[in-house]
């Protein structure tokens, strides 16, 4: 309640500022998109749906390296995730289609006093489909609580590049690991084989993340999975490892995934930019191997 309020505004001043409860419009965002290849090889978005706070423009064909590839930016003008927010992203790539899905900016998860924020991402890539799902980093503000779940199903012959960067606070203002809790769950099946299960909970209050076995003196953690049955995983692993380690600002290593279905890359760095550069190097090298082209230049619209 404010003091010294004029009579004309007294009525308003009696009202408590209640936050929108979870589940109300603007709190439960949904994105759905289906990518389909045309007979001439060009991929288009054949279906899309967005519920606020998400917003979708049409897909773009601005990738100068892969001209048949469709790029879709998931837009969120709300600025970030607040307590009680629930986001769902559902991406389907049909046979032979080629798509890149990304965001316009980092996902900021704000500090919370009640409840938590969560996001569920479901991805399906059909036979010989190709998807790059490479969102911008997630930034966990002080006192934020975030549950992120990603379920991926890949059919035979399909290829997926999946990246993820976790930034544990607003680093430039010396906010490190002050979030309440972060839970990440990822499952990937390839041709009905469970090739990857990644599940972890970070609670900085209970465990100092900067211990030797954990993240040491690094802050930012990045992962990238390059999954396909269409290449020699060991050869791709060797080339990715070498190329990513040509920069000395990060520490990075990669290994071959179960059933030789691709490569897992893990990166630790001091800044989101340095980790992003490592991921961009892996992205570039993968495109070199698969298509003999480079990654596209970053153009966020």
């Amino acid at each position: 309640m404010r003091n010294n309020v004029p009579q004309s505004f007294q009525e308003y001043n009696q009202e408590e500022v209640d936050q929108l409860p979870s589940g109300s419009p603007g709190k439960d965002g949904i994105v759905e998109a289906v990518f389909t290849a045309r007979d001439d090889g060009m991929t288009n978005v054949s279906y899309q749906y967005a519920r606020p706070p998400f917003h979708l423009m049409g897909d773009l064909h601005h990738d100068e390296q892969l001209q048949h590839l469709s790029t879709l930016y998931i837009q969120n003008p709300s600025g970030g995730m607040t307590q009680g927010d629930h986001h769902e992203v559902d991406i389907k790539v049909q046979p032979e289609a080629q798509a890149n899905v990304t965001t316009q900016s980092s996902t900021k998860v704000y500090g919370m006093e009640a409840n938590y924020a969560n996001s569920l991402t479901e991805i399906f890539v059909d036979n010989n489909g190709y998807l790059e799902y490479m969102p911008d980093p997630i930034i966990l503000y002080k006192n934020s609580r975030f549950h992120k779940r990603t379920d991926i199903k890949l059919e035979q012959g399909s290829t997926l590049l999946l990246s993820d960067i976790l930034v544990p606070g607003r680093l430039a203002r010396n906010e490190f690991f002050e979030f309440d809790k972060y839970h990440s769950q990822l499952t990937i099946t390839y041709d009905d084989n469970k090739i990857l299960t990644d599940n972890y909970v970070l609670t900085p209050e209970n465990t100092d993340p900067q211990r030797d076995g954990f993240m040491k003196d690094f802050h930012v953690f990045g992962t990238m999975f390059i999954i396909s049955d269409d290449f020699d995983s060991h050869e791709v692993n060797d080339r990715i490892y070498t190329h990513v380690n040509e920069t000395d600002e990060i520490i990075a290593a990669s290994s071959v995934l179960p059933y030789n279905t691709g490569v897992a890359l893990q990166i630790l760095g001091h800044t989101a930019q340095s980790v992003q550069e490592g991921i961009d190097r892996a992205w570039n090298k993968t495109r070199n191997i698969l298509f003999n082209v480079d990654r596209r230049r970053k153009r966020t619209y």
Partner: peptide, 16 residues
């Protein structure tokens, strides 16, 4: 379903 692990530095050393 609660099986988990997270120790990037150890995993990276294992990969190296």
């Amino acid at each position: 379903t609660q099986m988990q692990s997270f120790c990037p530095w150890i995993t990276i050393m294992g990969m190296k």
